[in-house]
Design a protein around this nucleic acid. Structure first.
Length: 150
DNA sequence: GCCAACGTTGGC
DNA sequence: GCCAACGTTGGC
């Protein structure tokens, strides 16, 4: 089983939104590296951190489970959607998503600042300079260490 | 296939 | 709102 970290802006979709829905499609990803991870590396049953980005306190707020294999993201075909892609064709979808299901909220968030100060996370990809991927693989050791900080 | 311009991400 | 980093686009 693999572990992941997935970023979302809480103003757009937060851990509480996922808690209310229980399961939701992780749509809107328009990055080829992430699409390839969805397609090739993510498996139902994998666990993922829910990370809040571009907000007052960036950090990990909860845990979710990957609930489906990758399938085409319907928002790419919707002209009214924020991430509409006019160049993507239904016969040959360009963008994929996975469903995620709520597992739990952390008792308190593990903040980005806290992780930056943690020597055991020096190699964590989230903290690498210039990192902009919205989905990041997390090593088992990093996963367990982060949960131990809760 | 190079590379400049442009857009997006995301912390601060 | 600023800005650095970096992916994508498109002209040549």
């Amino acid at each position: 089983m693999a572990y992941w970290l997935m970023k979302s802006e809480p103003d757009c979709f937060s851990i509480d939104d996922l808690k209310a829905k229980k399961t939701a499609p992780w749509d809107g990803v328009r990055n080829y590296q992430v699409r390839n991870m969805f397609r090739d590396d993510m498996k139902p049953g994998d666990l993922a951190f829910f990370y809040h980005s571009s907000c007052e306190v960036p950090g990990i707020y909860g845990v979710m489970k990957i609930a489906s294999v990758a399938y085409p993201d319907p928002t790419q075909f919707d002209p009214k959607a924020d991430h509409y892609d006019p160049k993507s064709k239904k016969e040959e979808p360009r963008w994929l998503l996975v469903d995620v299901s709520f597992q739990r909220k952390l008792k308190r968030p593990i903040t980005l600042a806290q992780m930056r100060d943690d020597r055991k996370l020096a190699q964590f990809r989230l903290l690498a300079p210039g990192n902009r991927l919205s989905v990041i693989p997390v090593g088992k050791e990093h996963w367990e260490h982060i949960l131990s900080l809760e």
